[in-house]
Simulated scan of single mutants.
Amino acid sequence: MGKRGIRMNLDWNLESLSPGQYKIADYIQKNLQSALFMTEQEIADILGLSIASISRFWRSVGFKNIKDFKNQLREHLEVTPAAKMKNIMDKANAESLPGQFLASSIEHLESTLQHYSQESFEAAVEAIVTARRVYLYAPGPSSGLAELMHYRLSRFGLPMHRLDRGGSELFEDLLHITGEDIVVLFGFVRLLPEAKVIVDHARECGYRTVLITDRLVSDFSARSDVTLYASRGEIWEFHSMIAPTFLIENLIVAVGMKNQEHHLRKLEQLNQLRKKYDQELPR
C-alpha cells in the first residue's frame, strides 16, 4: 500500500475543537477535493450545522478563512485514480447496483490508501506477532471482521480471544489481560462505553491497543497506541465493509510474513490433519 491522492497535513488541534468542529474536521479531511469547490453554506447544510460554525472553524485549525484554506489546498491538489474511475463510470451511465457499488468501493479503498500510514501498519503487525495473547473487541457490524482475524490468525498458532461480553460482564475478561497482551478494537463512528473502558484499562495495566476506525478526526483518535483508518463512507451513507476487510486481510498477510517458517509449518500441519481424517470429517 502506498501514498496516493491528496495528502495534506492539516493543523487539527484536537484539544481546542468542539464536538461540532470534530465533525467538520473529519468531513473536510475525507473530502479535500470536493471541499475545494464547496461554499460554507453547502458544508453547513451537509453537516447540519450553522454557517457561523463553519466560518469560525477555519481559524481554529490554522487558516484565516475558507479562502485561505482553499488557496493552500490547491497547492496540494492532484487527480486521484478514484476520481478517474468514477468519471468513466458516469460517462458509461452504469445503472446496475454492481456498477454503482463498484464505484463506491473504489472510492473507499482509495480513501483508505490515501490516509494509510506505513509506520502505524507496521506497529500494529509487530504488536500482534509479539503479544502473548491477541484480544478482539468488535461490536455490531464489525463482528465479521473480528471473526475473519480470529479464524486466519489462529491458523498461525497465535492465541486469540474474542471480547464478546458487554456491560459489566466485560470485567470478567479484563481481569485476565496482562501487559504482554494486545487488544484490537473496532471503533466505527464512535467508541462504545466498553471500548472506552478497555483503552482506559490498558493505560493502567500496560497492554497495547490497536484501534481500527473510520474516523480521521475524533475525540478518541489519540486514545489507542496504534490507529488504523479504513473508509466506510460518511455517517449518512451506507457503511461499506470493503475497505476494512481490505485492511484486515493485509494485516493477516503481513502477520503471516513475520516468523514465516513457523507460520507455514502450522498451515502444513493443518493440511496433514485434513488428509489424515478426510474420511471421518470431509470438507
Rank of each mutant, 00 (worst) to 15 (best):
I46W: 04
Q41F: 03
E126Y: 02
L113Y: 04
H239I: 01
Q279C: 00
K23Q: 12
A94H: 04
M38Y: 11
R56P: 04
V253W: 01
D90S: 15
A35T: 03
Q272H: 11
T80R: 11
V61R: 09
I51V: 13
H201E: 03
Q41D: 05
S120R: 04
F57S: 11
K196D: 02
T213M: 09
M160G: 06
E204R: 11
K86H: 07
L158H: 15
Q100Y: 01
L174F: 07
R4M: 04
D200L: 07
E122Q: 14
I128A: 02
R265Q: 14
S18Q: 15
L73I: 03
K23M: 10
Q33A: 14
G99C: 11
D26P: 09
H176T: 09
H76V: 08
K30S: 06
Y116I: 07
V125A: 13
D173V: 02
V217C: 10
A94D: 08
M8W: 15
A92T: 03
D200I: 01
L158I: 15
A127Q: 11
E280R: 04
K84Q: 12
Q272W: 09
A243Y: 08
F246V: 03
I242E: 07
E234F: 03
H76C: 05
E237C: 06
V125I: 15
S154D: 06
F63M: 13
G167T: 14
F101I: 13
S142Q: 10
I6M: 12
K30M: 06
R274F: 06
E172N: 02
L174G: 05
M241C: 05
A92L: 15
P98T: 08
N250W: 06
D68G: 04
S221R: 14
R59G: 04
E280L: 05
Q114V: 07
L192E: 10
I198E: 09
G166P: 03
S105Y: 10
L136S: 01
E126C: 07
G187K: 00
L36A: 15
S111C: 04
E107N: 12
L163K: 05
E122W: 00
R223I: 01
D68H: 09
L73E: 04
F101A: 09
E234A: 11
P81D: 10
Y135D: 07
D45F: 10
S18F: 14
F57Q: 11
